[in-house]
Simulated scan of single mutants.
Amino acid sequence: MRGVDAETAQPTPTGAVPKGRSARLAVPAAVLASVAGAFAYVGAVDPNEPGHYPVCPLLRFTGILCPGCGGLRSAHAFVHGDVLAALQANATAVLGYLGFAVLWTVWVVRAARGRPLRVELGPVHLWALGTLLLVFTVVRNLPFGGWLRP
Rank of each mutant, 00 (worst) to 15 (best):
D46W: 10
A75T: 15
L98S: 07
L87H: 11
T14W: 04
A44M: 01
V94Y: 11
Q88R: 15
A33C: 07
A75L: 11
N48S: 15
G96F: 12
L103T: 15
R21I: 14
T12F: 06
H80G: 07
H76L: 10
T62D: 05
A40L: 13
G96I: 13
A26P: 00
V45D: 00
I64M: 12
D82I: 11
A40C: 02
L58A: 14
L32K: 02
G37F: 00
F39A: 15
A77V: 10
V94W: 07
G71E: 06
P50A: 00
V17M: 00
F78I: 07
A30G: 14
T62P: 05
H52A: 13
A29P: 05
A91Q: 03
A86N: 02
L58K: 02
G63E: 08
P18F: 07
F100A: 12
T92P: 12
H52W: 12
L58W: 12
V42G: 00
D82Q: 13
V106I: 13
D82W: 11
G99F: 02
L65Q: 10
T92D: 06
I64V: 15
H76D: 05
G15T: 04
A16D: 00
C66A: 09
F100P: 06
F61Y: 15
A101K: 09
G70C: 11
R60I: 00
L65M: 06
T92H: 07
